[in-house]
Amino acid sequence: MTKYGKNTVRETKVSRRDLLKGAALSAAAAALPAADAKASVWEAFFQRHFQELNAREMEKVISRLEMEYAEKYGKEIKISTTKPLPGVLFGYGLDISRCIGCRRCVYACVEENNQSRDPQIHWITVLRFKKGDKWVSDMESADKYYNPDKVPEPGYFYMPTQCQQCENPPCVKVCPTQATWSEDDGIVVVDYNWCIGCRYCMAACPYGARHFNWMKPGLPAEEINTKTHYLGNRPRYSGVVEKCTFCIQRTRNEKGPYPACVEICPVGARKFGNLLDPKSEIRYCIENKRIFRLKEDLNTHPKFFYFFAT
């Protein structure tokens, strides 16, 4: 609630900002031949922060973006802007004793969330550890490029990592433009139209969960997932940071489906639910299983719980 409450405070500033913007816009318009400058280019340039848009502006932005995408990919892409559900705080569980490291989740995520195929961006990284080695906080012993014929390999265990959706996210703290923030349902999101690409958040993330579009994302139009969310899986731009959003476009519904990685997991190692609902399976995990969170000592309080069901 607070996040959206902030908007009302900001409204007062908007008038002044509009003034400045108007001045800048007119100056720019005067400087450039009007015929050359496409209106949408300037609109995109001066698009405001997602949280500052009012309903009317939001509608305009969405229709512009949908038009842009339709032009670019030749496909109708729906962008939703669903707000967080009240009384929901998402949590994620991952059963390390079950994961076999088959990487089905990695590619399900790529397809669901329109990640760049070339250059490759994976939101999920599966790490392989040697059993009997010095446990997962010694990350150097991890290998993410393992490629055997069959998994699980004897003597190894696997630990997938992705955005841990921290309660106290270091990436949000450091962002100089507030382009990334934590939503009320606990999902840390990025406004791809506000990020300046300074990559400070990537340096701050202890989980290597943030990924940068080093060039224009290579997203084949035929493989695109057209059901998107503004803060989630809509196609990204070159030079912005992106990350896992717990499939915000799927899960932000009263009866929404599980995230793509949970659905695909062949061994059922991945669990997902509402932390505020005492009946949810994630709460069952936390209350009945031995759990740990990655890099607990950094006090980031992830909402991503690793557990042992055995």
């Binding site: 061994v267 059922g268 669990k271 639910g273 509402n274 399976e281």
Partner: peptide, 23 residues
Amino acid sequence: AGIHGRRTGEWNGKKTYRLCVHC
């Protein structure tokens, strides 16, 4: 409780369990 085995469906609604013998 949904902790063992694969589950699909809605995170807050109807869920599909798998029988033990599916896996």
